[in-house]
Design a protein around this nucleic acid. Structure first.
Lengths: 215, 215, 215, 215
DNA sequence: CATGAATGAGTATTCATTCAT
DNA sequence: GATGAATGAATACTCATTCAT
C-alpha cells in the first residue's frame, strides 16, 4: 500500500482492439471475483489471474483496485439503465397507469439482471474514496423520471416535480431492490405481479393526488 | 480455593462497573472511529487507542472487529427503535392520517439522531460474515407496522397485510434514509415538512386504496 | 510478555494443605490441557480456568508457564521411575535373562501409563529455556542400570560399564518409546510379548558379548 | 494478450533463477535462525530479514512458518539419507559384520553433519500441524534396512524382518542421536570408534540370534 | 507493451504476566 | 492470600502496488 490516494481514472484509453479486450476481461473478471469471493477477498492479483492477465498489465489499464470496481459499477448501471430507458420509451405513449406499470416492471427486471453482483455491489462495497459518489442505478433515473412526469403534467396535480420524482424513484428502487436482495419470497414467479401491482398502485395513487378526493 | 463464588459483593460490583465502563468506551470509540476514519481504516488498534484501553482489553470483551461493529449497529438500532416505538404508541389513538404523519416524522427524526454514523453503517459497512444479517432499523419495524395495520384493518381495504407492511416500511425507510444521506437540500429546516407531507400522502393513498375511487 | 527470563523454581513451597491442593490442581490441569490442546495452545489462562483457580493464584505458585510444564514433566518422570524402580527391585534376585525381561516389560508399562501426555511432552514440548535439560525418563535410569550391571559384573564381560549402560538404556527407551508413539501395531496385545522378547534378546546378547563365541 | 507463454526463454530463466535463489536463501536463513534463536523465537519476519528478502516474498514461496521448517527438515533429511544411502551401497558386498560397521559409522557421520540444526529440529520443533508427520531420518531408513536384511537372509535366523528392521534402525538412530545430542564425551575423537564398535556388536549379536548358542 | 518477482506497511489477534482491589 | 481486569509486545500473514527485466 504505497500509494496514498489511488487514481481512479483509467490510465489510458484503450486504443487498440487488443487493449480493449484486456480491459473487458479485467472488468468481467472483477465482477466474477466480486461475486465469488466478496469485496474484501477480491484482490487485484486474483482479478488479474482470473482475467488471464499479468498483474502488471492490470495496472497498465486500471490505476487501482477501486478503479476496477468503479468500472464494474458503471457497467452494471449501464445495463440497468438500458432496460429502464427502453421502458421509458415504451411508456411514453401509454396512459399513465399503464406506463407506470411498465416502468415498475422494468425496475424489477433490471434488478434481476445480475442479482448476485447487485447484492455485492450494494452490500459489501464500501462507498468510500473513489466509490463515494457512485450510486447504484438512480443518478440518471431521477432526471428521466422527471421528464416523464413533465410530459404527464396535465394529468397530475403536482407542484414540485423534483420532489415527486425523488419520492417515486426512491420508492420504486427501494421496493424492487429490497425485494430482490432480501425477500426472495416476494419475487417468486407467482407473486412478482403482486409486487408490481402494489408498487404501481402506490405510485399512481401518489401522483394522482387521490387523497384530494377525500375530505 | 476453587474460587467458585467467593467474591464479596462490593468487589464484584466494582469489577463489573469497571468492565462495563470499558465495554461502553469501546463501543463509543468504535462509533467515533467509524465516522472519522471509515470502516476500512477503523482498525482494532485504533479503536482501542481511542477508547483509552489496551488492545488486549478490547479482545477481552470483543472477540473480533466485527463484533465491535455489531455492537455499534445494535446500539444504533436500539436508539432508532426507541424513537420509532414511541411514535407507534403516540399514533395508536390517532386517526390513520394523523398517525401516519407521526410515524413518518419519527422515521425522519430517527435517521437524524446520528446521520454520520448511520451513513457509515449503511454505506461503508460490508454485510458479510457476522454482519451478514444485521439489518439497519427495519427488522422489527415490519412487525410493528403490521400490528399497526391490523388495528386499522377496518379503515383499510387490504388483503395481504405482510405485503402492505413491506411496501410501507420499505418506502418510508428509503425516503427518509435517502433524504438524510444524499439530499440534505430536502431536509433543510423549511422543507422537512414537505417531505413529511409527501411521504404521508404516499402511504396514506396506498393504504386507503384510493385508486379504487377512479374507474 | 514482560518478563525476559521467566523463573522456573516454585515461588513458595506449599505449606498448607489448601495450597498443596491448588498446586496439584494446577499441575493436573496443565497435563490435561497439554494433552487436549497441545503445547502451543496451552495458555496459562486456560490452565488456571481448568484448575478452577484464578490466573493470579496460578502465578502465586508458578512463576511461569514453563515452570508448570516442568512440574508436569517431573511428575510424569516420577511415575515412570516408580514403575522402573520396582522392576529393578524385582529383577535383583533373578538371573540376568529373566531380570532383563522384567526391566524391558517395565519400560513398556511405563510408557503406557499416559501415552498421550508422554507424546505431547516428547513431541511438542520445545526443550528450550528452563526445559532445556529436562529429560524424559532416562536421567536416573542410566545410574540405576549401571548399578544393576555392577551386580552382575561377573556374569558379563564388560569393560566400560558406563558405555554399556548408555547402550542398553538408550536402546530400551528408544524401542519402547518409538513403539508406543509411532507403532501402535507393534504394541497390539498379541504382539507386545514379541517386542518384549526381541528387546530382551537384543540386550542380553549384547551384555553377554555372545559375539565372542563366534570366531 | 492473454499471456499464456509469451516469455522469451532468457527472461523466463532469469526469473526462475532469481526466484530459486530467493527460495534457497529462505531455507538457509530458516536453518540459521532456527539454530541461533530456537524454534519459538524464529519468526517469519526474522527469517525474511536474515534471508535479505521481504516478508512478502517469503510468503510468495512459503505459505506458512511451518512450511519453511518442513523445507529445512526435508533438506536436512536429504543430506542425512545421502550419507546413509551411500553406506548401504558400500555395505552391499561386504560381509555382514563389516557392513554393519559401515552403516553405524554412516549414522554417526550423518548426525554430525549439522548437529546444532539436528538438535533444534529434534528437540524444539513441535510435531504438530504440518510437522506432525515429518520424521527425522528414519522413514526411509526402515525400508532400506529391511532390504539389506533380505539380502543377508540366509546368514540370519530371523522370522519377522519388519520387526528386526524396527529394532535395528531404532536402536542405531537412538544411540547415535543421543550420543551426538547429549553425550559429547562419548563422541570424543578417541572414543567414537568405541561407540561404533559397541553399536555394531549390539546389532550383530541380535541379528545372528547368538543367544541361541546358549541354552 | 507485458511480465511477475519483490515490496513492506498494515492488520487482526494471542497470551504470559502484573497489580490494584 | 486471592482475584481478574488490564496490559502491550509480539506474531503470522495479506495485498495493493512498483519496477527491473
Amino acid at each position: 500500500m504505497l500509494a496514498r490516494k489511488p487514481q481512479t481514472t483509467p490510465r489510458k484509453i484503450a486504443s487498440q482492439a487488443r487493449a480493449h479486450a484486456t480491459v473487458d476481461a479485467l472488468v468481467e473478471a472483477t465482477a466474477r471475483i466480486l461475486v465469488r469471493d466478496g469485496f474484501d477477498r477480491a484482490s487485484t492479483n486474483r482479478i488479474a489471474e482470473a482475467a488471464g492477465v499479468s498483474i502488471g498489465s492490470l495496472y497498465q489499464y486500471f490505476p487501482s483496485k477501486e478503479s476496477l470496481v468503479v468500472a464494474v459499477i458503471e457497467r452494471h448501471n449501464r445495463d440497468l439503465m438500458t432496460i429502464v430507458n427502453a421502458a421509458f420509451v415504451d411508456a411514453k405513449d401509454k396512459p399513465l397507469k399503464e406506463g407506470l406499470a411498465l416502468l415498475v416492471a422494468a425496475a424489477i427486471d433490471g434488478h434481476r439482471v445480475d442479482p448476485a453482483l447487485h447484492r455485492v455491489l450494494a452490500e459489501q462495497t464500501p462507498r468510500s474514496g473513489a466509490l463515494a459518489n457512485v450510486e447504484l442505478f438512480q443518478r440518471d433515473a431521477y432526471g428521466i423520471f422527471r421528464s416523464y412526469l413533465e410530459e404527464h403534467r396535465d394529468e397530475l396535480h403536482i407542484e414540485d416535480l423534483d420532489l415527486a420524482a425523488f419520492v417515486c424513484v426512491t420508492s420504486i428502487e427501494a421496493l424492487t431492490h429490497t425485494a430482490v436482495i432480501h425477500r426472495p419470497d416476494i419475487l417468486a414467479e407467482e407473486r412478482v405481479d403482486q409486487l408490481s401491482e402494489e408498487t404501481s398502485r402506490l405510485i399512481f395513487g401518489y401522483l394522482c393526488r387521490l387523497d384530494r378526493l377525500i375530505r
